[in-house]
């Protein structure tokens, strides 16, 4: 039952993401690419870019896209698939927040909660690093070393550190450079 599997996968993603946004990438990447092979690494990376340039929380964008894509591939309804994944990724948040909202001051000041969060901080960053490393290796090395893509990546990285360019602009710049280099000039990646 693809819908149930989608729902459950994204409940897990929602439940084990602490720190929001990019912290979700390593979990989705492992589940969607490595475990279930629902998407290729290329499609996933493209979609990270698309999610960054469409409105709304990143987690919702990527969950919705996976739901549509996977359910359609399995011959089901993309709409229903997207409801399962989006509902799944949101459900743990809503349940947990409604449960703790009443006793917020107690729960958040409890030593165990603070200690647990202190433990997750470096690990969450390490996980994002691992996702970045895996996708970077894939994007630049899969099917042979890609010198032009590597140069573009280095250039964009330097630019993003020097100018604090927003995510949307960086993605649009990437798209423009892609069209110029691979489309107009017909260069090899």
């Amino acid at each position: 039952m693809i819908y149930l599997l989608l729902f459950w996968t994204f409940v897990k993603v929602g439940l084990f993401t602490i720190g929001g946004g990019y912290a979700m990438i390593p979990l989705i990447q492992q589940e969607v690419i490595e475990r279930h092979a629902w998407m290729t690494a290329d499609q996933f990376t493209e979609f990270v870019g698309i999610a960054e340039s469409t409105p709304g929380p990143f987690a919702i964008n990527i969950a919705t896209f996976t739901g549509v894509h996977v359910a359609q591939d399995a011959g089901g309804s993309g709409l229903l698939g997207s409801l399962c994944t989006t509902g799944g990724v949101v459900l743990p948040s809503v349940v947990i927040i409604l449960l703790i909202a009443g006793l917020f001051h107690y729960a958040m000041r409890h030593w165990a909660a603070r200690a647990a969060l202190q433990g997750t901080k470096p690990v969450v960053v390490g996980l994002i690093g691992a996702a970045g490393y895996t996708l970077l290796r894939h994007t630049l090395l899969e099917g042979g070393f890609k010198p032009l893509s590597t140069a573009l990546a280095a250039g964009l990285l330097a630019l993003s550190f020097l100018t604090k360019l927003g995510a949307v602009w960086l993605i649009l710049l990437g798209a423009a450079l892609g069209v110029l280099c691979f489309g107009v000039l017909g260069l090899q990646p």
């Binding site: 493209e46 990270v48 870019g49 960054e52 970045g132 970077l136 995510a167 960086l170 990437g174």
Partner: peptide, 14 residues
């Protein structure tokens, strides 16, 4: 070709 560029930019964002 735009998506190829977007992939590079997305990895840079991560």
């Amino acid at each position: 070709s735009a998506l190829a560029g977007i992939r590079v930019a997305a990895v840079v964002l991560i």
